[in-house]
């Protein structure tokens, strides 16, 4: 028993105090993936509700008739580009280039802010034309789905800025690159959900 304890200690010290897990994957990373898997069910429900109610508009004016596809395509491009800058931030921290990592994190956050600004603009336009949340089931479903996604993007921006701030204090860096990778996983998930929303909500008639 003493030998076993000693061997365990030896192994732990040899691996610089990494977490011992039965899967070999850190608990934090596995938890994020499980969370993202469960988020698929949340967005699946919201997308299905939108599909069911997309034609239910009180005066026949459905969200699809008011979309500005060029504008939304540019928003999609911005979010896609933020995924690239995020992956470059992860790449930078893995090669211990903290300055580049902070730069890419802030660029990603900025692109997220641009995307959210676009969404606020779009919502304002629709509201200005008299199509609010309670106008009809179609509009309620539209605002709920895209609004939930917007909240996720906003939380992602907070996570990005927090990570950049923590790296300045030395809490995040080359000694724990996985923390940046986990934030990146969340951000890419938000992008991947938008890929589905863009096609199902905006493109399909």
């Amino acid at each position: 028993m003493t030998d076993l304890t000693a061997a365990l200690k030896e192994e732990l010290v040899g691996h610089d105090h990494e977490h011992v897990t039965s899967t070999g994957i850190s608990n934090e990373k596995l938890a994020m993936w499980v969370f993202l898997g469960s988020e698929c069910l949340l967005f699946g429900g919201l997308i299905s509700t939108f599909i069911l109610y997309k034609t239910r508009a009180a005066d026949g004016q459905t969200p699809h008739q008011l979309y500005d596809i060029l504008f939304t395509s540019i928003s999609s491009f911005v979010l896609l580009m933020s995924s690239l800058t995020m992956v470059l931030a992860v790449s930078a921290v893995q090669r211990a280039d903290l300055r580049a990592m902070r730069g890419w994190l802030l660029t990603t956050a900025l692109l997220g802010v641009v995307f959210i600004s676009g969404q606020v603009y779009e919502f304002t336009e629709f509201l200005g034309e008299g199509y609010g949340f309670t106008h009809s089931p179609a509009w309620s479903a539209f605002y709920t789905l895209t609004g939930f996604h917007g909240v996720h993007v906003t939380l992602g921006i907070v996570m990005l800025l927090s990570t950049a701030a923590l790296s300045l204090r030395g809490h995040v860096g080359s000694h724990n690159p996985e923390s940046v990778e986990i934030v990146g996983l969340y951000w890419h998930f938000v992008d991947v959900v938008w890929v589905v929303i863009f096609t199902v909500v905006y493109l399909i008639k």
Binding site: L4, E18, H19, V20, S22, G24, S26
Partner: peptide
């Protein structure tokens, strides 16, 4: 020798 799984070694 006893091998303990750690992150990245499994």
């Amino acid at each position: 020798e006893i091998s303990v799984p750690v992150a990245g070694d499994a």
